[in-house]
Amino acid sequence: MNLEQKIKQAMQEVAELGDCQLVEPIQPNTLLLESGLDSLGYAMLVAQLEEDLGIDPFTELAIEIYPSTFAEFLAIYQQCLNTQ
């Protein structure tokens, strides 16, 4: 499973946990705020990915501006994994 698929799977898991309905399909330009996850769901996604991938790019790369689209979110995780 590639990184994009792992993130989408994690989104699905936290959506179920948080009782949110994800939009279908999630495209690169899908806005995270309009993906169906609320702010708590988004925090849960970062937590789930930290468990799955062992990284929290927002802490490790000290990112201060949160990504707005799915593609930007994916790129940050890719960047963090590349620097490991």
């Binding site: 946990l17 970062v46 789930q48």
Partner: peptide, 8 residues
């Protein structure tokens, strides 16, 4: 709190 969130 993130881990607690995943535990609900």
């Amino acid at each position: 709190v993130r881990s607690m969130m995943l535990n609900r």
